[in-house]
Every structure is written in C-alpha cells, then in structure tokens.
Simulated scan of single mutants.
Amino acid sequence: MATEAFEDIVETFEFLDDWEDRYRHVIEMGKAMPPLDDALKVDATKVTGCASQVWIVPRIEGEGAQARFDFDGESDAMIVRGLIAILHALYSGLTLGEVLKVDAPAELARLGLDEHLSSQRSNGLRAMVERIRHVAAGKTAAA
C-alpha cells in the first residue's frame, strides 16, 4: 500500500545500481526538503531513539475516517533528512487508518535500506516510523 511518491523512489532505486548512488540520492532528497522552523524543534517534536537530532511535526487535515496524515521533519544529519523524505513519501496524504496499515519494514526493504544502514540508523528509522504510527493511532482513537 505505497503511495505514488514512494513508488517513484522505488523505481529510482531500481535504476540506480550502485548503493553509493542510492545513498547520494537519499541525501539529495533530504537537501530538497524545506527546513523546519526552529520554534518547532522542541522536546515534544523530537524523536527519541535516534543517534542524530530528529524532529517530526505531524499535521492532520480533515476529520474522522477521512482525516489525512502529513508531517514536516528535519534532522541535523543529511542522510537522516533523506530518510525523513522517504518516510514523507511513504505516508504523506494517507488517511490515519491507512498509515496504520502500512508495513513500513517491508516497504523500506524494497529500497534495500535494511541492508545498508548502520544499526544506529536502522534503530532511528524504526523510531521515526513508531512516532508516525503513534500519532496516527492517537488521532484515530480520538476520532
């Protein structure tokens, strides 16, 4: 259940044979993301469990079952900014229920990230996914 934006990333990764090229592409995706306002870089938006500084600021548009999930995010590490961009492509625009149905490990495995990220980066990526799922679950329960 991947978004079209995520499928585009999968296609690009299939085209890029070398992991170094993929790594550079992830960094470029991170550079293309808009910076997060410093006022939003607070403890409430900080993701714990990441070796780098990571902030995720969720935005829910709409009400009830049709509410759509989106978020802004940033990190002080360029590769992590790229991972945030990948997660944005994976989740942005989905309903809250759809967010909870995404099998993030399986989708991210399609990119080969699980094979090429350090254990610290993998743990951080899992922490970001859990934060996104936690927000979606909390908003779904409140609806």
Rank of each mutant, 00 (worst) to 15 (best):
A2E: 13
A2P: 14
D8Q: 15
I9M: 13
I9G: 03
E11G: 12
T12E: 15
E14S: 13
L16G: 10
D17F: 12
D17A: 14
E20N: 14
Y23E: 06
H25Y: 15
V26L: 13
V26Q: 11
E28F: 04
E28W: 04
M29E: 11
G30S: 00
M33G: 09
M33S: 14
P34R: 13
P34E: 12
P35F: 07
D38E: 14
A39T: 13
L40A: 14
K41G: 05
D43G: 09
A44F: 04
T45F: 13
T45V: 02
T45I: 00
K46I: 04
G49W: 08
G49K: 14
C50S: 07
A51D: 01
S52R: 13
V57Y: 13
V57N: 09
E61K: 14
G62R: 12
A67H: 03
F69Y: 15
D72Y: 05
E74S: 10
D76C: 06
D76K: 06
M78G: 00
I79H: 07
I86A: 12
I86K: 04
H88W: 08
Y91V: 01
L94C: 01
T95N: 06
V99P: 09
L100G: 05
K101M: 03
V102I: 10
D103S: 09
L108F: 02
L111D: 05
G112R: 05
D114T: 09
H116K: 04
L117K: 04
Q120C: 05
Q120K: 11
R121Q: 01
R121F: 02
A127C: 00
A127S: 14
M128Q: 05
M128V: 03
V129G: 10
R133Y: 02
V135T: 15
A136P: 11
G138S: 08
T140M: 15
A141V: 00
A143L: 14
A143D: 15
